[in-house]
Design a protein around this nucleic acid. Structure first.
Lengths: 225, 225
DNA sequence: CATGTGGATATTGTATACAATATTCCGAGC
DNA sequence: GCTCGGAATATTGTATACAATATCCACATG
């Protein structure tokens, strides 16, 4: 096993950059709700905890800020972002369009591998129905990512990923448990339309699902209208 | 005028951060086409030219990379992004949805100030019809930004801004001069529908405009299809 | 002559040092 | 007792130093 002879085409030894590791760590911590919305993130403390210097910490924080997961003003540090009810409404309005587009494109462009991934993602959701809202948020994110992935549109993938993360943040802020009775049926309808390659039905099913869930979450955030 | 007594609520003396200045400088240079797509950007050289250290340079570069204006792999530096024909098609497909949504929302939500800004932006385009493609790109971007601004949806604003920049990059790459005869009429139709608060018409007008221009640009990029 | 191998060079990635701004808390004054 | 400085502290912003990786070119080798 003379692996050390050639360069290093091994798959597991990807040249990991410290900043990427910090980014993934922080991102996961925020999306899993380990750091609460509004909680402050100190560069030095985080650096000491992870055993790295401030430089990669800062670079990861900047990326997450642009992702919309953190918020911060100059010289005042960053916090896990808190979202207002209006911002949540705005986000869902955009997400309705993009998820609709994603489902329509997925219906037209999905491959056999995409179909398998979609079925697997939905299966996980259905078999873990009684998990907590964190697990539910994570699995739901996985299902939607599978759809946008099946759309095979890089620009959509970038933007949808951004939106999904913001939605996950909103869910953690409200701690909304998706107990809506139509959820399972709506998920199934989206999957069926996509697999049937019915773009129009897929788009409408995805949009309806977003509307249903948006109403649930936004209502949870704010007593008004 | 004892301004020095209280903190410093003066508007013109915004606490400018070096990284923000570098970011705007680089962003403008890329969007104005001063740096050609594919051209390399060296951290040290740029730092010396601007008279700042590498730290704010790197932070600006990371932001622009996430914006989709630069591209780079680990340890290999960054270049002004080059876009493939497929990526351009993908981008326009998404933009059609978002611009349509933006126009529809703008029709419903625009204020008197928004209306004035929209008229001004369109006036600039029409009075500078004979400029080069750089000026045209800049003014067109201004018009679309005015629309998404009038939509008063923060999430849409973020994503649309991202998309607009990518489109501007594509235009510089193809050096497409928008000579399509319908352009002026389409712009006018969008503006009219928005000002009439006709959301459905505004959405369709915006989508048609994107489709028209996308066909022009994509055709310019690649002989196929 | 093509090729690939080695080192010299250049460039990026990370860590640390220094500067500027913000926060905190204590005491003076009313 | 409350409020308004103001110094002490802490934290972020920037600059620089060091480490790791990539690029380039000369040179040897088939």
């Amino acid at each position: 096993m003379s692996l050390s002879q050639h360069s290093a085409p091994v798959a597991f030894a990807r040249p990991v950059l410290v900043r990427d590791g910090v980014y993934e760590h922080l991102r996961r911590a925020v999306l899993d709700g380990e750091i609460a919305p509004g909680e402050r993130i100190g560069e030095v403390e985080l650096g000491e905890r992870l055993g790295v210097s401030r430089t990669p910490i800062r670079e990861a924080i900047m990326r997450l800020t642009q992702d919309g997961l953190l918020m911060g003003s100059a010289n005042k540090g960053v916090r896990v972002r808190t979202v207002t009810a209006q911002e949540a409404r705005d986000t869902y309005a955009v997400r309705e369009e993009l998820d609709g587009l994603g489902a329509a494109l997925a219906a037209a462009a999905h491959t056999a591998a995409d179909a398998a991934a979609l079925r697997a993602a939905l299966g996980e959701i259905n078999s873990a129905r009684d998990g907590d809202y964190r697990q539910q948020t994570r699995l739901d994110l996985g299902f939607h990512r599978a759809i946008t992935g099946a759309a095979h549109n890089a620009a959509l993938g970038d933007l949808a990923r951004n939106l999904e993360q913001r939605v996950a943040l909103i869910k953690h802020q409200t701690r909304t448990y998706n107990a809506h009775p139509d959820t399972a049926a709506q998920h199934a309808a989206i999957l069926k339309a996509v697999l049937d390659r019915d773009a129009a039905a897929a788009r409408e099913a995805a949009r309806l699902h977003v509307r249903t869930f948006a109403a649930l979450v936004v209502n949870e955030m704010n007593p008004d209208a």
